[in-house]
Computed example of a mutant assay.
Amino acid sequence: MVADVVLFHREAAHLVVCESKSGANVEVDQARRYGRLLPQNVVRAVSLSLPHAMELSLEILYVGLEEHAERLTLSLDAAKANCPLLTVSDKSIKLLRPEHASANLLAGIPADGVGLLAPPTSYIPYDHESDDTEFVVPVRGRLVQAASRGEVSVTARGLAEACCPRFGHYGRQARGQIVAKVAKAARQIATEHPDTFRCAMSPGRDETLVNILRTPEDFDARGRTQAYQALSRRSRSRQRLQTDPNQLDLLQELGDGDDSEDNEAEERP
């Protein structure tokens, strides 16, 4: 059982464990297991650092789409789950079953809901449940940035933290899954570009380490911009051999995207 989000109100010493549902049904067995969850279990699972010894309180919050509100409510009733339900639509966010909500939760959400004036400003593009291929592009970009800064190596966990701004908000198991997917993506990129990256195990043999063999500035004496462009073109020629049409060039983010001047210089006798 892995919760989607865990919220912690430090002043009130209150935990809110959130379970999101995209469909219209609640798993009865899961809801009953949530009902047996203790605050101490959550603190250990998410490696939560408490400022001092405190008596914690906890509640479970189900989150779903407003169009499924009736079915979700019936499912929670069938499971005898004393949990509030937060529903989301294009126009508002509402708290249903408020009789099961804590005073902390009720204080944060108006009784008539929260109106939404615009779509969300950002989305989480990938997480621990995403396909492994979703991590190739962001990991590639972070490795290029590390190479441009002259870094010697970077760990898979460091890449995961850079690629996933909310990495620290996930539970221990989810963080481990993200690091594993990032490490797999890094190994793929190192295989594609063996002159630039090499993967190995860290000295403690406990995580993947990506060694940066040389920076793009080392490739060509013509200067930084031309060197990045040259490596970028080499990446494109290699990419034509790949079967994945969605894979981006290694140095797409850092190249100018316009190498016409460089081509003319190469064509002149």
Results as ranks from 00 to 15, higher is better:
P216E: 00
E207Y: 11
I212H: 03
A183T: 11
T191D: 13
T196L: 15
R238V: 12
F197L: 12
P245Q: 12
G176L: 12
R222P: 00
N211K: 05
A185F: 14
D244C: 15
Y170P: 01
Y170F: 15
R205I: 06
A200E: 15
T225I: 00
A183L: 07
S237C: 06
R236V: 08
P203V: 11
S232D: 15
T208L: 12
Y170C: 06
Q247V: 08
I178H: 02
R236Q: 13
D244L: 15
Y170I: 06
K184P: 07
A230I: 04
Q239T: 12
I212D: 02
N211T: 10
Q188T: 10
T191H: 15
L248T: 12
Q229S: 00
S232N: 05
E207N: 15
D220H: 01
A190H: 05
A230C: 03
M201P: 07
G204A: 09
T196Y: 08
L241M: 12
R205C: 13
R238C: 12
N246E: 14
A174N: 08
V182H: 10
L250V: 09
L231M: 04
D220E: 03
L209D: 01
L209R: 04
E217W: 04
Q177L: 04
R222D: 01
S235P: 08
V182W: 10
L248W: 14
K181D: 07
P194N: 10
R198N: 15
V179G: 01
R172Q: 11
A183F: 09
P203D: 14
V179K: 02
E207M: 13
A185S: 14
Q188Y: 15
L209G: 01
D218I: 01
T191L: 14
S202G: 09
E217F: 06
P216Y: 00
A227E: 03
L241A: 14
R238N: 15
N246D: 13
R175Y: 10
D249L: 11
S232R: 03
V210Y: 07
K181H: 06
G176H: 05
P245L: 14
T243R: 09
P245G: 09
E207A: 13
S202N: 13
A174I: 06
Y228F: 07
Q247G: 05
A185G: 12
Q229H: 00
D218C: 02
P203N: 10
A186E: 08
R236I: 10
R214A: 04
G171L: 03
L241S: 14
S235Y: 00
R236P: 05
D195I: 08
Q242C: 13
Y228Q: 00
D218E: 07
G204C: 10
L251P: 04
